[in-house]
């Protein structure tokens, strides 16, 4: 369902990032429909769990999820990136109900997520904070600054997901300046580390359940994902990072997704 929203949005906008949105669709779905404590009728509820899409270019996945959850009408997804739309190219917390942090400049969202987790500790509240960071995004030094701070302050209410789809704009992450392997680095930065298949709901559920049980340190989930997951011609193709389907491709993609439902 979220994948359809991603396709509807990026197809209508003829602009946006379908590949990295499809790779996180399953985790987004789990977070908002099984994991997080949120209330679409009261998006600013102070005790809600927070979500920060640090890889802000995957906004179509966030919007599709929020729409399905009831934060705003599903039909609004096709206004994506239009000048009169609430759905900006990258998430805007001032304009879109349910968006907890404005992101898009890579490396910054994770710091904000850490700040939110710290706020919960300062205010003695029990809400949790989730953030999804891109694998390519992890080339930003700020990501590691944020990780160090989170571990130093024992932010066990923070869960960082690394969307490891292996591709970034200029090519395979491994060929650019490879931040992988992630597990050893994250562990040495003081995180409890779990590795999963990002498209296996049993593994997703087990990981987030384990994260909640870990006390005294933050958790990182390395989510091995497929860029463009669910649409055969988009899967593992770097060109679908920032290009969108034409009418014919859209019809085929929708048919493929519907067949999987």
């Amino acid at each position: 369902m979220i994948r359809l929203g991603i396709l509807d949005g990026t197809h209508a906008a003829a602009s946006g990032h379908p590949g990295g949105s499809l790779s996180i669709a399953d985790i987004m779905s789990y977070l908002y429909f099984a994991e997080m404590r949120v209330n679409p009728a009261n998006p600013k509820w102070s005790d809600r769990d927070r979500f920060v899409l640090s890889k802000g270019h995957a906004a179509p996945a966030l919007y599709a999820t929020l729409a399905r959850k009831g934060f705003f009408p599903y039909e609004e997804l096709t206004t994506l990136r239009r000048v009169d739309s609430r759905l900006q190219g990258h998430p805007d917390m001032k304009g879109t109900p349910g968006v907890d942090m404005s992101t898009g400049s890579l490396g910054q969202g994770i710091s904000a997520a850490v700040g939110m987790a710290l706020a919960a500790k300062v205010d003695k509240k029990d809400y949790r904070v989730y953030t999804i960071v891109g694998d390519g995004e992890s080339e930003e030094g700020q990501v590691w600054e944020a990780l160090m701070f989170a571990a130093r302050h024992d932010l066990d209410n923070l869960c960082v997901v690394i969307d490891y789809n292996g591709l970034q704009i200029d090519g395979p992450v491994a060929n650019i300046v490879n931040p992988a392997p992630f597990e050893g680095k994250l562990a040495s930065f003081g995180f409890h580390v779990i590795t999963i298949d990002a498209h296996d709901f049993a593994q997703i559920e087990a990981a987030f359940t384990e994260a909640k049980a870990v006390k005294g340190k933050p958790t990182a989930i390395v989510a091995n994902s497929v860029k463009g997951k669910g649409v055969s011609f988009m899967e593992n193709q770097v060109k679908w990072h920032g290009s969108t389907p034409n009418d014919e491709q859209y019809a085929q993609a929708v048919a493929e997704i519907r067949a999987q439902m």
Binding site: G109, A113, V114, G115, Q142, A146
Partner: peptide, 14 residues
């Protein structure tokens, strides 16, 4: 840079 980001998160949480 991280300090300002953390400040933003704290402020976003009130």
């Amino acid at each position: 840079g991280n300090m300002i980001g953390i400040a933003a998160g704290l402020a976003a949480a009130g």
